[in-house]
Computed example of a mutant assay.
Amino acid sequence: MNDRAKSAPAGEAFDFLQLAGKTFLVLGVANKKSVAFAIARLIEQAGGQVIYSVRSESRRQSTAKLLADRDVRVCDVEDQSQIDALANQLAEEGVSLHGLVHAIAFADYPEGIRPFHETTRQQFLQAVDISAYSLINLCNALKDRFDPDASVVTIGISTTRMASESYGFMAPIKAALESSLAFLTKSFSRFSRVRFNAVAAGLLKTSASAGIPGYVDSYLYAERVIPRGQAVQTAEVAQTAVFLLSPRSSGITAQSIVVDAGMAINYFDAAVVQAVTDSEVR
């Protein structure tokens, strides 16, 4: 036990995460099931201040009750003028950001999930722009707003090497997102100690994921493969993200922390293999 913990008065909570009084920009809240909302709520519970950024005025209205009395901005990351406007607003207000949460992803499947080689240029480039390049663009626009020791956290996926048909073409997009962490860390190191990390999440039960064709079946399969028999919870991803935002993770940068409850070690679980082979026999 360290000296600070020993000297804390009886009944006084020990601020392990050291987020109290610090300001964080959180992008990507859509509803109460959003990973971004779970992260923001934990920051607030730890005494931090959250500035929320949503993609449109209609999204601000739809989350008005959920984010009542919060500071909510509008920024569509496909629109450079809106990114610049957000950066200018924060500069005019003298805001210093101790962290940024990038929980933004989008892929267009107008005809459902199709073979990867049929992905159109428009689909792929739009997904790259919103889901990966937006992190780079936002960090560049906000570089003067970051505290020297700020932490940037994005949301990845547990593996970008598995050709999951139910995820369409998003795995290569997420691979680009995660690869950019090393390059952002290196380029920002010329003038700051800002850190860039990702939480590489397993399959989650969110409103956005439920809209992906075939995702629900994959989610149910994940529950069978995960050793504990329960899928990854949004709260578990959020808790890891908040740790990465905190000074307690100061030695971690350019990393993707996998949060999959052990799914990757258990694909050949005997019960699952037996279920498949039995179905083949029948």
Results as ranks from 00 to 15, higher is better:
residue 125 L to T: 09
residue 137 N to W: 09
residue 145 R to Q: 04
residue 152 V to N: 01
residue 136 I to R: 05
residue 136 I to C: 05
residue 164 S to P: 06
residue 159 T to G: 11
residue 145 R to E: 05
residue 135 L to W: 00
residue 154 T to G: 12
residue 144 D to T: 15
residue 141 A to T: 06
residue 164 S to D: 09
residue 163 A to L: 13
residue 126 Q to R: 14
residue 149 D to W: 10
residue 125 L to D: 13
residue 147 D to H: 10
residue 148 P to S: 02
residue 125 L to G: 09
residue 129 D to I: 03
residue 122 Q to T: 12
residue 129 D to P: 02
residue 138 L to F: 06
residue 127 A to K: 01
residue 156 G to V: 00
residue 147 D to Y: 02
residue 133 Y to R: 10
residue 157 I to E: 07
residue 160 T to D: 11
residue 156 G to D: 04
residue 126 Q to L: 06
residue 125 L to S: 11
residue 153 V to M: 03
residue 132 A to Y: 01
residue 148 P to F: 05
residue 140 N to V: 10
residue 131 S to F: 06
residue 124 F to N: 10
residue 151 S to H: 02
residue 164 S to W: 12
residue 130 I to A: 05
residue 158 S to C: 13
residue 143 K to T: 03
residue 165 E to I: 09
residue 129 D to W: 04
residue 147 D to Q: 12
residue 154 T to V: 10
residue 142 L to R: 08
residue 128 V to F: 08
residue 157 I to D: 04
residue 133 Y to T: 08
residue 159 T to M: 01
residue 163 A to T: 12
residue 124 F to S: 09
residue 135 L to I: 03
residue 130 I to G: 06
residue 162 M to A: 12
residue 151 S to V: 01
residue 134 S to P: 04
residue 130 I to D: 02
residue 136 I to S: 09
residue 140 N to L: 15
residue 121 R to G: 06
residue 160 T to H: 07
residue 126 Q to G: 07
residue 164 S to F: 13
residue 124 F to E: 08
residue 137 N to A: 14
residue 127 A to I: 01
